[in-house]
Design a protein around this nucleic acid. Structure first.
Lengths: 341, 341
DNA sequence: ATAAAAACTTTACGAGCGTAAAAATAAAAC
DNA sequence: GTTTTATTTTTACGCTCGTAAAGTTTTTAT
């Protein structure tokens, strides 16, 4: 029966029989007031449906409870998954997460940071674009606002990082492939957007050599974030040129592998681990769609949960001024055996 | 050479030689001040890198320049695509868009709306969850804040809508399939999350009957947003039970079709329009991945650009108190012929 | 050159809340 | 029941910017 509209905290203080400063405390942290007071407030809160003005709140707080989540490309299901997981963590810890995407453009990444600065966020969880990122601008931001990088790191900056153990990913897959068939050649983008790609290539070379095999790398032209399309086009060309030096192809990531699977299909080349198939294809990341490719893609699963959790915990530690281990954290992936390899 | 840090507009007024109210006007709309004044401000702006406190700004403005974008499930690439397109439109019109996702849960949808209310946004562009949505809460919100629905409508509410012309989608596809082979049966979820599904089913039935064919519907069990998985499991079962009454299967949407393609693959059933294939499969939506399925999926393309543009324009009209045509807008899709049908 | 219009400055108040200090009250401890 | 301790109330000021009104300066029109 809210007869009058509550316009501000003062009016709500009147109807609830609690003073405004106490209300202010309550909204800051409900547990900071006596249980009886809390009950009184919450009863009236349900009745009047009042919410404090967040702008007035944040204006005076040195620190807001906003947390920024920045990803390079939200239309990539891998980042959608990261964003989703981290959002949930923030939310359940009482923070207000906001997801931003750079749409693959470094200028947008900087713009986001500038807009974010105006929001005075408590902290930032960021998966930087990588190679293309404007290091200087990002560094300037991280100096002011507690930040943790996830998924891809920007070396040289004094910012903790949590992400996949890329060398382990590739090593695990190369060893599996060698164990079960011919040693793989490696299919990747010539100029990958993401720094993880380099680590995977290096690990491929190392592991192959360690096992006495000759590493063979096939590189796809093309820039941007249309990995499937790049994998498809370069795959078609490579099949035509007989550029693949092995009947087993390890792709730098699942999205490229998805494109390559399509290329194989169009060329009439059968993929799988059966005796009557032509080649094997493997990916890395366990992209949400890789279970639905034809054949389902053998890959290494990112531990989204662990990466999200750890990067969030690191940020919390930073916010609470705890001594944090500045060493980066690399999370292992798990081999997901499906039919493609 | 910013020797002193600028803390607020007053301090910036001093160093820039412009009065604070004029600055306020400038930040509200740069074109509202004289060119010479604008230059003076912008010169100092570059030098001192000052930005007004958005919280203080929004606190006093009756209307912020925030625009909310709410989608039911951001991990679905179709919505990622919508979000991306609309974000860009808002941005280039000088608004500050913020994307929210309900993660498929009606409670979260309501929470977003409540958080959004606190942000006092100028307007909202929303793709409601649909069937599961809390109509009452959404209606209450739309009464207060200018809103436009896109992608899926909530009938009965006085809110303009822009979305796909679902009957046209299905009609176009059914006619194409009939023209080029056997009349299709229809594969859908029994309890679809999205109201568009119903329209597509109805259109399927109508079109089939209009062409003198017997409509046949196969329904998949399962709830939630894992459409591919649902399509896969139900597809496997349907193949085993020989439940598909035609060698041509039209799916309610691409994601289900992707699951069904995987099911066909696992059953050794070949898909395509060649003479030596077993069945044809078609989807609807032109999901970003449907070009990369094996075989590439024949589908109807959503006109993301047009839907985004029109819903944004509608919202702008609402914000400017223009007389808007309250009739809903349905955007036609285009047949994308690929190899699966 | 003069009048009219537009833009700017000065002054002043308001928005909604944070927060500090002192006084009053309630709860817990003994 | 009194003392101690924890909460709450009262009072008061601050934050940053929006915005209105009246006066001044600059620009435009004639």
């Amino acid at each position: 029966m809210a007869t009058t509209k509550i316009r501000n905290m003062e009016e709500f203080a009147e109807v609830s029989g609690v003073s405004r400063p106490t209300l202010s405390k309550y909204f800051h942290d409900p547990d900071s007031v006596r249980a009886s007071t809390r009950d009184k407030i919450e009863k009236k809160l349900a009745e009047f449906n009042y919410r404090p003005n967040i702008y007035a709140m944040n204006q005076n707080r040195k620190l807001t409870n906003n947390i920024g989540i920045v990803v390079p490309y939200l239309a990539d299901p891998v980042f959608a998954e990261f964003a989703r997981t981290i959002e949930l963590l923030c939310h359940s810890a009482g923070y207000r997460p906001t997801v931003f995407t750079a749409h693959g453009h470094p200028e947008e990444e900087v713009e986001i940071l500038e807009a974010l600065r105006a929001m005075k966020p408590a902290g930032l969880l960021m998966a930087p674009l990588g190679r293309a990122s404007d290091r200087l601008e990002i560094e300037r931001f991280c100096d002011d606002i507690p930040t943790v990088f996830f998924d891809s790191e920007l070396s040289g900056l004094d910012v903790p990082f949590v992400g996949a153990d890329n060398p382990q990913f590739t090593r695990t897959m190369v060893e599996y492939l060698c164990r079960t068939g011919s040693p793989p050649c490696f299919f990747e983008m010539k100029t990958p957007a993401n720094p993880n790609a380099r680590k995977r290539r290096n690990s491929y070379i190392e592991t192959m050599e360690a096992n006495g095999h000759d590493p063979q790398i096939i590189q796809a032209d093309g820039e941007g974030w249309s990995f499937e399309e790049i994998g498809l086009q370069a795959g078609l060309k490579a099949f035509e040129d007989k550029a693949f030096t092995s009947d087993t192809i390890l792709c730098s990531n699942d999205r490229i592998a998805i494109g390559l699977l399509t290329a194989a299909y169009e060329k009439g080349i059968t993929v799988g681990l059966g005796a009557n198939t032509d080649i094997r294809i493997a990916g890395q990341d366990d992209h949400p769609f890789s279970r639905f490719t034809c054949p389902p893609l053998t890959t290494i699963a990112q531990d989204f949960e662990a990466i999200s959790r750890q990067s969030f915990d690191l940020l919390m530690a930073k916010l609470n001024d705890q001594e944090i281990p500045m060493q980066n954290s690399y999370i292992e992936g798990k081999l997901i055996m499906r039919d493609s390899a």
